[in-house]
Amino acid sequence: MTTATLTLTTRDLRAWLPKYGVYLAIVLLVLYNIFFTPYFLTWSNLRIQLIQVAPVVIVALGMALVIGTEGIDLSVGSVMALAAALIPLYLGYGVAAAVLVSLLAGVAVGLINGVLVARVGLQPIVATLALFVGGRGLAVVISGGQLKDVRNPDLIRLGSGDLLGIPILVWVAAVLVLVVAFVVRRTVFGRRLLAIGGNRRATELAGLPVKRVLITVYVICSVLASIAGLLSVARIQSSDASAVGLLIELSAITAVVVGGTPLTGGRVRVLGTVAGALLMQLVIATMIKHNLPPSTTEIAQAVIILVAVYVARERKAR
């Protein structure tokens, strides 16, 4: 009797942990900080944390969709750099023009990635590696290799302004989270995306436009990355193509994985992804507050990733 109850509990835990473990970790970390970190529970601190995490959340949303199709997109950081590099060039025509151009850059990169994956048939990691390397190079060339200050008041307001006491950046991220969650749950596109990740061959045979869906997914991912790039420029009030979005693909993949989305596709956890990004942000913040060197932070991140993947590992067929 006791043994039976015990095994049941272990099994329940196995099913529960990958889904909700990330929330549990956040709660534990927040509790720790409330008691041991001075000034943690202040509005200004929470505000900084949210502003810092917003770009990662936005990029991770797109990444989650791509991973849901059993793909991966390494080029997101380069897309951010491209968007950042293009903004100062077109800001003369107004904020709207600059935003539009940087979003179009995202569409272009997404189309290239999508076509390489869906039509040419390259593996996603290879297809997106091309623009991971080349995209940033191009961005540096466009920007002339210089850091450019951005002084447009509209853009600066986007990066530093508030709406109802909450930073606009955070509002943008929150709205995008809701939109992506809605797309995954309620739209034909969302369902098709999950079916492709679950069994691409079967989805093709069922007569679904698999290639079109895949291309769209990569375009969405790139556009989200270009939004993140745009917001980063607005926040730091300068454009540095060689630094914007550096290594963000790793943070995004980490957020997705820690959030419980399996790398094998077929499932997307949007809220989990947000939680994953928040958790990683909290870990970093906690370490910094306690004066631990960045190297320790990196090791802690690595441990969290390993734990997340271990907990979520696919159990072999019995």
């Binding site: 369902r191 999950l194 079916a195 679950g198 069994n199 079967a202 989805t203 069922a206 007569g207 077929g266």
Partner: peptide, 21 residues
Amino acid sequence: KAEGIVAGLSVRENIALAVLP
């Protein structure tokens, strides 16, 4: 298994897959 069902989706999603539009 390889070309028919999408094992990770529900009965519901599998049946509706081809008629979503």
